[in-house]
């Protein structure tokens, strides 16, 4: 009798042990994404939100995602980061450069937690920056714009002359000139990412000046450019998210940010431990690593001649295969 009890007891303990180890292996990474704006803004926030949702599906057995949107006030960022860090979240994404100082401050207090900063330049061993290499995307848009322009004048409107935006613009000009060396390119930086009224004014004066297609490289300002295109009945090229639905008759195509591959890289690196290293860690999206694609022409497809479509597709492939080499724009600045 005693023996049976003993055996049963051992079995019980063993099963408990197995149960706990199994549940430990089952434990998913807790991932939090903090967005500074609305998740459906058709731009900066939405591109990240959609990508995170896609990864949450694909990695359903590895991660559990919580998203918070509309953290508008800079003063509220640190408490939001603290909320998640203190609840033992494993990876926390702060989507925007304004997260930099609070993210670094909180990351210092939680060295076991992985923090990811959406654009910025400061890093710690447990933080990384994810950002976009826009020059390849700009190049592709430049090629498309130059091929589609009938007047030989194209435009580009950007927010601030910040490194990445600057490289995107230079790529755009370089791409356009590769197709048509004589093309006239008008360029405006509004100086403010949210100044959609200023961007609209700039775009309208470009269209009035004979420009017949404009690419924008911004967030809030992009909406102004699309408004202008609608008003003037001209073409515009989007950026960040697929902006077709905002102006179906005017948005010809656009650069689309695909954060999903990078998010997966980050999660894999956190699991493998490669994330936690002392060298500054940057994750870039670009055309070669599938981080940048271009939006479909949708119903405007018949307005784009087949040979233009073919040439754009070829350019995209060449950029992907790194067959197109661009100069170091930053150095030439």
């Amino acid at each position: 009798m005693k023996k049976i009890v003993k055996v049963l007891f051992v079995l019980l303990v063993l099963s408990l042990l197995v149960a706990t180890t199994v549940s430990a292996a089952d434990e998913k990474l807790k991932v939090a994404l903090i967005l500074p704006g609305q998740a459906d803004d058709m731009s900066f926030n939405q591109a990240m939100y959609d990508a995170m949702m896609q990864v949450a599906d694909e990695y359903a057995d590895k991660i559990e995602v919580t998203v918070v949107e509309k953290v508008y006030e800079v003063a509220d960022i640190e408490p939001a980061l603290m909320d998640f860090a203190s609840q033992n979240y494993d990876i926390i994404f702060g989507h925007g450069f304004q997260f930099q100082e609070p993210l670094i401050a909180v990351a210092e207090m939680f060295p076991e937690t992985a923090f990811c900063l959406g654009t910025g330049y400061l890093t710690l061993p447990n933080t990384a920056v994810y950002d976009v290499e826009l020059d390849t995307g700009g190049y592709l848009m430049g090629v498309l714009a130059a091929l589609m322009s009938e007047t030989g004048k194209i435009g580009v409107v950007g927010g601030a002359d910040v490194s990445e935006i600057f490289r995107g613009h230079e790529g755009y000009k370089y791409g356009a000139k590769s197709v048509n060396p004589d093309i006239v390119i008008e360029e405006v930086y509004t100086g403010d990412w949210n100044d959609s009224a200023g961007a609209k004014e700039a775009a309208i004066s470009m269209y009035d000046d004979g420009v017949d297609i404009i690419w924008h490289s911004g967030d809030g300002i992009g909406l102004g450019v699309l408004e202008a295109a609608k008003e003037k009945g001209k073409f515009a090229l989007g950026n960040v998210a697929d902006q077709h639905s905002l102006a179906p008759d005017n948005v010809l195509s656009g650069v689309v940010y695909q954060w999903a591959p990078i998010i997966k890289n980050i999660i894999d690196d956190v699991i493998s431990g490669a994330f936690f290293k002392t060298d500054p860690l940057f994750y870039w999206i670009n055309i070669p690593n599938d981080g940048l694609t271009y939006a479909s022409y949708y119903e405007l497809s018949d307005k784009v001649p087949a040979e233009v479509q073919a040439q754009v597709e070829q350019t995209f492939k060449d950029l992907k295969d790194k067959k197109i080499v661009m100069p170091d724009f930053e150095a030439a600045k």
């Binding site: 450069f97 100082e101 910025g120 490194s163 600057f166 100086g191 403010d192």
Partner: peptide
């Protein structure tokens, strides 16, 4: 404020982000 942080008061070591030095 926007003019200052995008212009004359922008952090010279801040990689062009619209903020002043700390």
């Amino acid at each position: 404020l926007a003019y200052l942080v995008y212009g004359p008061m922008m952090d010279p070591n801040g990689f062009g982000y619209p903020q002043s030095a700390v």
